[in-house]
Write a protein that binds this DNA or RNA. Structure first.
Lengths: 201, 201
DNA sequence: CCTCAAACCAAGCAATTGCTTGGTAGGGTA
DNA sequence: TACCCTACCAAGCAATTGCTTGGTTTGAGG
């Protein structure tokens, strides 16, 4: 007897994608079997193919949907007329917010994007990567030029540190836990901008 | 005594472990097949079982050997009578040096330790994790107490940022490339301690 | 009452997986 | 010569993999 909540609309398809995303995030894409997904959904593995073409098309839909939302957010920040430092602040906060709202999607991207990106189907992942790098480098360079950031920094290195540090937080951050994503962003920005050494040093 | 090829010492076993480690690092443990390893070594998959019990025992040997060496290094630093800030400095440099010397091992640890750690055989991975956390927290707390670090920091949060940022560098750092591990450590420590904002800010 | 579509089941297939088994080539030693 | 030992091959097995196929249930609409 399958009485799926009729109130929770969005359909079975969306629900299955959520289940799959959680499993992909937990065990990795390749390491998650279609039988795992089906079992978690309470159906048989073959029944998944009524909803999706393949296991690959499931991650595809999961990742592309997330990426579209994320970059829409980036676009808004960049389109504003805030100064570089404010934009940096906003982009960092946006990223921690993404971890808070879509932890599974971020985890999948962190763990499997490299491998998936080698397939033609997932070429957009590499494109988004370039796009993201350009955003960060532009903001950092603008910050250095306008004097709000240190002049002696290797901007490319700083970019990689920021990118990695922000996204890798998905490994330990838990939505609904003690720390809000805003609190994490506060501390992170404080460390990143001012350092951990005492100013009297 | 068995003296096969005195020039290429270390034996076939060591050579096979290196080949396996590189593949595990590149594609992940589960995603690397015994046939992949054998092919890279120029032999058939069955022949691997003359040298090793199982695929699991290969990662086991790779990871435990690396961990032993790494923690021996940590031990030396902690045993010294340097102050907290110097020890922090040395531990960070030691970590980037480990990435330089054993990139495959670090990558495997980063990508697969969580999953492998759930098996009893790899319980030492979790132990090492706790040990590592204690080292960092001790140093950070000592730094705060002695006044060389800011008083208003969430030490646990700082620990996670440092840990992740340091080790995640394995994703882009390439031994023998333009940047030496020492140069990366310099920049990282500078950013971590002093921040990226200009001091005139 | 009939139709139809969405959602699922039951069974299985071809490929791939880790691993086993019995054998062999070849160099060193007695 | 006879005997090992190390390193390998050749063949294959049981389990697991992603996916296919044809059929069944269920509820909404005509």
């Amino acid at each position: 007897m399958t009485v799926t909540t009729p109130a929770t609309n969005g359909g079975r398809r969306t629900e299955l994608l959520r289940i799959a995303a959680d499993l992909f995030a937990e065990k990795g894409f390749k390491n998650t079997t279609v039988r795992d997904i089906a079992e978690a959904a309470g159906i048989l593995s073959g029944s998944l193919y009524h909803h999706f073409d393949s296991k690959e098309s499931m991650v595809d839909e999961i990742l592309s949907t997330f990426q579209d939302e994320l970059f829409a957010g980036y676009g808004e920040v960049l389109a504003s007329d805030d100064d570089a430092r404010t934009k940096l602040d906003r982009v960092v906060r946006l990223s921690f917010e993404a971890i808070d709202r879509h932890p599974a999607e971020v985890a999948i991207f962190q763990n499997d994007a490299d491998h998936l990106g080698s397939f033609e189907r997932f070429g957009y992942l590499a494109e988004r990567g370039v796009q993201s790098r350009d955003i960060w480098l532009t903001l950092l360079n603008e910050g250095v030029e306008t004097g709000v950031l240190r002049q002696d920094l290797d901007v490319h290195l700083v970019y990689r540190f920021i990118r990695d540090t922000v996204w890798v937080a998905v490994r330990w951050y838990r939505p609904g836990g003690e720390l809000s994503h805003g609190a994490v962003a506060d501390q992170y920005l404080s460390i990143l901008l001012e350092g951990i050494a005492s100013s009297a040093d």
